[in-house]
C-alpha cells in the first residue's frame, strides 16, 4: 500500500463525490501522522467548514465555479488554504451568533468554529481566500 499524500493542490467543484474524495485524501494524511483524536477532529472540522464556505459563498456565485484547495500536513503542523474566487466578505463583521438575538438564526457559525479550533485563521483583504494553520503542541 502506498503512503498517503502529505500535501495536495486541487481545483474543487460542488460535486459531493469530488468533495468526499478530497476529504478522504486529507483525512489519510492526518491519520498517517498519528494526530490524536481531538486534534484530528479539530482539523477535519476546519477543513470541512473552509471547503463548504468556499463552495457556498464563492464558487456557487459563478457559473461552473470552483475553489482552489491546497493543504499540507506535517507531523506537527497542518496548513489549509481555500481560495474561492468569489466576491469575498468582511470576516471581522460577522454577527455574533452566540448573542441571544442571533442564537436562533441559521448561519454565521462556520468561521467561529474555524477560529475556535485552529491555531490561526487568516483571510486576505478581499475575504475570498482563507489560510488555516494548526500547530500541534
Amino acid at each position: 500500500m502506498s503512503a498517503p499524500k502529505t500535501h495536495d493542490a486541487i481545483s474543487l467543484t460542488n460535486d459531493p463525490q469530488q468533495v468526499r474524495a478530497a476529504r478522504e485524501e486529507f483525512a489519510g494524511a492526518i491519520e498517517h501522522f498519528g494526530f490524536p483524536r481531538e486534534a484530528a477532529f479539530a482539523v477535519m472540522l476546519a477543513f470541512d467548514e473552509a471547503v463548504a464556505n468556499g463552495l457556498k459563498y464563492g464558487a456557487a456565485q459563478q457559473p461552473g465555479g470552483a475553489i482552489d484547495l491546497s493543504w499540507s500536513v506535517q507531523k506537527d503542523r497542518v496548513r489549509i488554504v481555500v481560495d474561492d474566487h468569489g466576491p469575498g466578505f468582511d470576516p471581522d463583521n460577522i454577527p455574533d451568533c452566540t448573542l441571544p438575538e442571533n442564537i436562533e438564526k441559521a448561519c454565521g457559525r462556520g468561521v467561529m468554529l474555524m477560529r475556535a479550533y485552529m491555531t490561526s485563521v487568516e483571510f486576505n483583504d478581499k475575504g475570498n481566500k482563507v489560510t488555516l494553520v494548526y500547530e500541534r503542541n
Binding site: F41, M44, L45, E49, A106, G110
Partner: peptide
C-alpha cells in the same frame, strides 16, 4: 462523528 455548521443551522 462529524457535523458541519450547516447541520447546526438545519
Amino acid at each position: 462523528d462529524h457535523l458541519s455548521s450547516a447541520a447546526l443551522g438545519a
